[in-house]
Every structure is written in C-alpha cells, then in structure tokens.
C-alpha cells in the first residue's frame, strides 16, 4: 500500500523540505486572537493553520451532563472543508471523533477539574489548513487557549510527533512523510512533570525504534514548549505597555 520507491531523504540525508532528521518545522503561536472566546490561540506549524477557542468554565448545558464533583471538558476537533486537497465533508468523520477524544484525554491531566464542580468548558478546534501533525499542533494551541482562559494548570501541554522515513527515525513528519513513511508517533507531554498525556502510533517499528521515536518527540515537545511560553508572555507584555502609556 505504501510506495517505498519514493525517496523521502536525499543523498545528504535531508528531507523533502530540506530539514534534518531531528529538525522541527517552523512553529508560530499567538494567544488571545478571538474577541468573543474566554481563551484562544492560533498556531502555524509548518503549513498547518489551526485556530482554537475556549468557552468557560460556565454552567454546563445540557444539565444531565453536569458532574457534581468536577468540571466537564468538551472538545471538538474539526477540519474545514477546504483544509485538505480534496474537499472534506463538514460532517464530523470518525477520525475527527476519535481525535476529539484523544485530545481531550491529553489535556485533562493538566487541569484541576475538581475545582470547578458543575461547570463545563468547551474547547473548539478548527483546522483551517492541514499538512500532517494536526493533532499535535491542535494540542499545543489548545493548552495555550486554556491558559489564556485563565484556568489554573499543572503544566502547559505541548505536543509533537516523531516517525520513521526511509528507515530513519525523524522528528515532526509533514503530510507526505506521514503518508509515505513507515510510522508516525504523536506524543503530548507536560515538560515539568515528565508526563506523557497522549501517545499513539501507526506503522511498523521495533520496540527499540519506538522508544527512540518517543524520546525524539519529547525533545521536540521541549523546544515547542519554549515557543508556547513566549507566546503567552507576549500577550501580557503588550497589555502592560498599554497600561504604562495611559
């Protein structure tokens, strides 16, 4: 099924977009971009463009979904019809349903859900353009949006994938590498707690390669984590300056 004849690495060991094996795509993060949301973030990870909005904590509707002892996090990962080469039907696919669930599971360990009984937080992820690794970029942005909403957190969750292309373990696969490569291992991570909150894999790897990929993905996470913190600080730096001017 997978065409092994296509070369994903050139003679110098560089990838299709000129990256080294352990090199990330460029990551740009911006916080607080939606005026109506309680928290929001925008991420450009390579060609991925994703916008995330958070509403809440607010009263949970419908009421029967309320939990007397905790907050309920609802998460919707959705791809725009124009985000991929062939138009995607706007109805949620099985893939989107699964991703909504694993993204929610990846963010929950960072939140103090028991501090907000009977409330709900809605997290909406819209993928405007997809180029491989959207679940990771979504998590990176979603956690920032939650922080922007003012929710206390154990750590900011950051995500990055590693995989295998042409027999070599490589960081942060883009769409073509993901489709034609041998394996993809997305990882979400809380750097301060050394906690892996999302881990998936498809493809074929030996247990040793699998370990190597997880470790490489964690290194990628740590790098993106710094960009996250900068993005969050930038928003508040701007506000501070405005106050000084007044």
């Amino acid at each position: 099924m997978k065409d092994k004849t296509i070369k994903l690495l050139n003679k110098k060991g560089l990838r299709l977009d000129g990256r080294k094996l352990d090199e990330l795509r460029s990551v740009k993060l911006e916080v607080g971009i939606l005026p109506n949301a309680d928290g929001s973030a925008y991420v450009e990870h390579g060609k991925n463009k994703i916008i995330v909005g958070v509403f809440g904590p607010r009263e949970m509707h419908p009421k029967h979904l309320q939990r007397a002892d905790r907050m309920v996090l609802r998460c919707r990962y959705h791809m725009a019809p124009f985000s991929v080469p062939e138009r995607k039907s706007p109805a949620p696919s099985r893939r989107e349903n699964e991703l909504s669930k694993v993204i929610r599971d990846s963010l929950l360990p960072s939140l103090f859900v028991e501090n907000y009984p009977r409330t709900g937080v809605d997290l909406y992820i819209e993928v405007l353009q997809a180029d491989g690794g959207t679940r990771c970029a979504s998590i990176t942005a979603a956690s920032l949006a939650l922080a922007d909403a003012g929710l206390p957190m154990r750590d900011i969750v950051v995500a990055c994938a590693a995989g295998k292309v042409n027999g070599k373990i490589a960081l942060d696969l883009m769409d073509t590498e993901d489709k034609l490569g041998d394996a993809d291992v997305p990882v979400a991570y809380m750097p301060n707690l050394n906690a892996i909150t999302l881990l998936q894999m498809d493809g074929k790897l030996s247990t040793k390669e699998f370990e190597e990929a997880v470790k490489m993905a964690i290194e990628g996470c740590k790098k993106i984590s710094n960009i996250q913190k900068e993005a969050l600080q930038t928003k508040y730096k701007v506000i501070k300056q405005e106050e000084v001017e007044e």
């Binding site: 694993v102 599971d105 929950l108 360990p109 291992v185 809380m190 707690l193 050394n194 906690a195 892996i196 909150t197 999302l198 881990l199 998936q200 894999m201 498809d202 493809g203 074929k204 790897l205 030996s206 247990t207 699998f210 370990e211 997880v214 470790k215 964690i218």
Partner: peptide, 20 residues
C-alpha cells in the same frame, strides 16, 4: 515482534519510564 499500533487512553498520564 514489531509494534504496529499504539493508543494511550484515559485522563491520566504515563512517564517515559512507564511507557518503556
């Protein structure tokens, strides 16, 4: 003996050592 699919689930986490 190769790994061909992995899925973590649930609202908790694993450390790298636990994954290994």
């Amino acid at each position: 003996g190769n790994v061909c699919a992995v899925q973590k689930g649930g609202a908790g986490y694993f450390t790298l050592e636990q994954i290994i």
